[in-house]
Design a binder for these strands. Structure first.
Length: 429
RNA sequence: GGAGAGGUGGCCGAGCGGUCGAAGGCGCUGGACUGGAAUUCCAGUAAUACCCACAAGGUAUUCGUGGGUUCGAAUCCCACCCUCUCCGCCA
């Protein structure tokens, strides 16, 4: 959520910033609505003030033993007028809230211009894509060769975009997640967390997935109850919301959290994209990094967090590149995002495996995550960051494709071997 | 699923129709004391919105959430959510 004060003080500037994303902010609609809301609120406040004053007078008269009949008569029509005013105000307020909740975050000035991913800026490359002396297969072929992928069963159980992994492939998947978690906890100073995979509408509103992107989520309705829960699309949601409704002391920050969770996405609107293999699934595992920091620290924190995610790929010896997302490609809640793209020999392309975002105060304002700024003594929004460290399913794909051998085996990256009982090579069953 | 208790400010906790944004304590901040500190003493210390210069000052809202009763609700009524204790069931 944007700071409504900034929207009032500098509407042109806000509109110009959002325009970089390709988002058109209707300033006239906003200022008309905001003007009417303000008017209604002033009117309602005045009526409530009158009611409070008169009620107090009635109380005092009663205490003295005076006749309150005339006083009651004076107050007779107040209730109806107040109720009408309050109803009008509530209507205007909810319209304004909805408008505000639907506005994306302002972009950081360093975000490059551009409409879509073709304008993203490559920052650096790490590692040389390996030269294969045989034709590199894609991860589906490699995994099936190992007898570790069962697409028929997956679709029989759950339909399209689900996977069943078995044997060495399932073990490799588990090893990857555990390695990442350990790396971030032991070397990068994150606190391990285990969190709910089902969350409320309010929680998803806090991080920005709702109200606008409900079609991307799996929603669970509970029988004979109006209550509902959603499957998390990323651990960013529960982890970041841990800071919600809190006021941190300065010395409690930064708060660095990591969790390994499944993620669930309905992938509405992505029909036909990445239909083969494990790239795009309704369910996948991810190790997620979240930082809650002081506002002055968030830019630096984004660089560090991206470094933490990069380290995963470096330790796995996977070639990757880092890109800065351009204006049109930065997500709703983010002010600035770096993507890490891993080299996939099966596709001959770099594909996203991590996305690291600085959400500045945008999420903090939505969920009331604050810290007490020693300089002002006041509670002020914290800044929140999140990043994949990294997507486990895609890391599995990357290892299978990059570490495959001509004979169909897969060389296990050295850092994963301790998690596989020392196994150095995955063999066909 | 059955029985009971409860949800109040950064935290703990009193209040149970009117002057209650709410006693008391903890914590925090400032001051006194001290060579410096601890202890002690004094004072201050909620958030949000609106008027307004995001100052001072003022108004409104907020005592789990949403409704209701009332001139007036933290306090009474209804529904829902959540927490805790005991019993049952269960990975």
């Amino acid at each position: 959520m944007l700071d409504i004060r900034q929207l009032r003080n500098d509407p042109q500037g806000v509109a110009a910033n959002l325009a970089r994303r390709g988002y058109r902010l209707d300033l006239e609609q906003f200022s008309a609505l905001e003007g009417r809301r303000k008017e209604a609120q002033v009117a309602v406040d005045a009526l409530r003030n009158e009611r409070n004053t008169r009620s107090k007078a009635i109380g005092q008269a009663k205490a003295r033993g005076d006749d309150v009949g005339p006083l009651l008569a004076e107050v007779e029509s107040l209730g109806a007028r107040l109720a009408a005013g309050e109803q009008a105000l509530a209507g205007l307020q909810s319209g304004l809230d909805r408008l505000l909740l639907d506005l994306p975050n302002l972009l950081h000035e360093s975000v490059p211009e551009g409409r879509d991913e073709t304008s993203n800026v490559e920052l650096r490359r790490h590692g040389e894509p390996r030269r294969f002396e045989f034709e590199a297969r894609d991860h589906v072929a490699v995994a099936e060769g190992l007898g570790g992928l069962d697409p028929r069963s997956a679709s029989r159980l759950s339909g399209a975009r689900f996977a069943v992994l078995t044997g060495p492939v399932a073990a490799l998947h588990r090893a990857l997640a555990q390695f990442m978690l350990d790396l971030h906890v032991r070397e990068h100073g994150y606190r391990e967390a285990w969190v709910p995979y089902l969350v409320t509408r309010q929680t998803l509103t806090g991080t920005g997935q709702l109200p606008k992107f409900e079609q991307d989520l799996f929603r669970l309705a509970r029988a004979e109850s109006e209550s509902e829960l959603f499957l998390i699309p990323t651990a960013e949601v529960p982890l970041t919301n841990l800071a919600g409704d809190r006021i941190f002391d300065a010395d409690e920050l930064p708060l660095k959290l990591v969790a390994h969770t499944p993620c669930f996405r309905s992938e509405a609107g992505s029909y036909g994209k990445d239909t083969r293999g494990l790239i795009r699934q309704h369910q996948f595992d991810k190790v997620e990094l979240v930082q809650i920091v002081r506002p002055q620290d968030s830019c630096q924190a984004l660089e560090e967090l991206t470094g933490h995610a990069s380290k995963v790929l470096e330790r796995l010896e996977l070639p990757y590149r880092a890109v800065a997302l351009c204006a049109g490609d930065v997500g709703f809640s983010s002010t600035k995002t770096y993507d890490l793209e891993v080299w996939l020999p099966g596709q001959g392309a770099y594909r996203e495996i991590s996305s690291c975002s600085n959400c500045d105060a945008f999420q903090a304002r939505r969920m009331q995550a604050r810290w007490r700024n020693p300089e002002t003594g006041k509670p002020e929004p914290v800044h929140t960051l999140n990043g994949s460290g990294v997507a486990v399913g895609r890391a599995l794909v990357a290892v299978l494709e990059n570490c495959q051998e001509a004979d169909g085996t897969v060389t296990v990256p050295a850092v994963l071997r301790p998690y596989l009982g020392g196994m150095a090579r995955l063999q066909p069953a």
